[in-house]
Amino acid sequence: MSEAPRIALYVQHLLGIGHLRRAAALARAYAEAGAEVLVLSGGIPVADIEFGPVAVRQLPPCLAADATFSALLDDSGHIIDSDWKDRRRALLLKEAAAFKPDALVIEMYPFGRRQFRFELLPLLYWAQNAKLLVASSVRDILVDKGRDDRVMEAADLVRRYFDLVLVHGDPRLVPFERTFPRAAAIADRLHYTGYVIEKPKAVPSADRSGGEVLVSAGGGAVGWPLFAAALAARRLSGLKDRVWRFVAGRNLPEADFAVLRKAAAIDPSIVVDRFRADFTELLANCHVSLSQGGYNTVMELLALKVPAVIVPFAEGQESEQRLRAELLAERGALDMLDSTNLDPALLAATLTRRAQKGALPIDLDLDGARHSAQITLSALAKKQAAAGHG
């Protein structure tokens, strides 16, 4: 009986926790498919993310200084320097080599995470010399930076180092070329996996009539404008007599969290949680959801058939959440409002209307984690068979 294939998965989250949650879902799917998995994680550690029977190595962590990614900070709040980069690169290469993987999966690069070329290019050199199968794991929509040279660079890196590009989306909603104009140049490596979501433990509620208004913003780092608008909209809403639950997120600044707690102290129908491990169960049973619309939350909303209003994060050059929400709103699956003009009366009316309308089912592939594992392991088996017969 042959040994289990060994897969190393690199992930770096900088602002929210969506990248890490998606990587955890992928890692579990690889393990369920029979692989031995090592996750190499470079972001700030996050409790309560379930990796399953998977080894996790924490690299020296860093995060974005702000929503515009103006700088990278270490876990002490200092801007990372060349010495920090040298130490982390050495540890990454050491951990990867010690694991002896058959395949390397890199989350986002070369379509993003360009700031980490200092360690990812050496990692790719090593993987190529070790004759590993190399895959890029990338979401359905990229942020448009308006840089044709970066697009060309990404395509060139794919052709040089990568065997697979796992696009975690469904072309029926948005084809990869919509936001990556050079998709045709790497078409032989592109594989749509479907959307990667946490497998909901909850069953969608058949009767949401008694549910809460659930307000959330992922990790919460940039969630305050949404929470402030929701507090104002609540007083104007036809849903004001319901419980409004605010799940703030671990990264919402303490000063903003204190404002939410103060509102809850005044009004018992406002409930505030910093974090809920049972968030999917809350989604499954809520009356209507108001959220920022990150990849993971949106896909859970669709899987659980939740009536939803999305206010996508759109600071700086961020365009990904908005485009996905617009495409789903065009199909009637949810409502979208613009974060730059979040009028409380409009928000209140939109929430009330969507709660009455309910969720409109949409046919999308939501089994992306399992499909990613199948595609990767099948390609690895073919590569190993070809090497064995070479």
Rank of each mutant, 00 (worst) to 15 (best):
M1G: 07
P5F: 04
L9P: 09
L9E: 02
G16E: 06
G16W: 03
I17L: 13
H19C: 07
H19E: 02
L20Q: 06
R22M: 12
R22E: 11
A24N: 03
G43A: 11
I44W: 05
V46T: 14
E50G: 00
E50M: 00
V56R: 12
V56W: 11
R57Y: 11
R57N: 05
L63H: 12
S70G: 15
S70H: 03
D74V: 14
G77A: 09
W84D: 13
D86I: 02
D86E: 13
A90E: 14
L93R: 11
L93W: 03
K94L: 11
A96E: 01
A96D: 00
P101Y: 04
Y109C: 08
P110A: 09
G112R: 01
R113H: 10
R114G: 05
F118P: 10
F118C: 07
F118A: 08
E119K: 08
L123C: 05
L124E: 11
Y125Q: 11
A127D: 06
N129A: 15
L133K: 10
L133V: 08
A135G: 09
R139C: 09
R139N: 14
D140K: 04
L142G: 02
D144L: 01
G169A: 12
P171N: 06
V174R: 09
P175N: 13
F176A: 09
R178N: 05
R178P: 00
T179L: 14
F180I: 08
P181N: 04
A187H: 12
R189I: 03
L190G: 03
H191P: 00
Y192G: 09
V196F: 09
K199R: 15
K199Y: 00
P200N: 09
K201Y: 06
V203C: 13
P204G: 11
R208F: 03
R208I: 09
S209G: 15
G210V: 10
E212H: 08
V215D: 07
V215Y: 10
G218S: 03
G220L: 02
G223I: 07
L231C: 06
A232Y: 05
L236V: 04
L239I: 04
K240W: 00
R242L: 13
V243L: 12
W244I: 01
R245T: 14
V247H: 04
A248H: 01
R250S: 14
R250Y: 01
E254R: 14
D256C: 13
D256P: 00
D256Y: 11
F257K: 10
V259F: 03
R261F: 00
R261C: 12
K262V: 00
A263P: 05
S269C: 05
F275I: 01
S291L: 02
S291M: 07
G293R: 15
V298H: 08
E300V: 05
A303S: 12
L304K: 06
A308S: 15
P312T: 09
E315W: 03
Q321M: 07
Q321G: 11
R322M: 07
R322F: 06
R322I: 00
A325Y: 01
L327S: 03
R331N: 08
A333H: 02
L337P: 12
L337C: 10
D338E: 13
T340F: 11
D343M: 06
A345E: 13
L347M: 03
A348K: 03
A348E: 08
L351V: 07
L351M: 14
R353E: 14
R354S: 09
G358P: 07
G358L: 10
P361V: 05
D363M: 04
L364E: 10
H371T: 12
L377Y: 08
K382D: 15
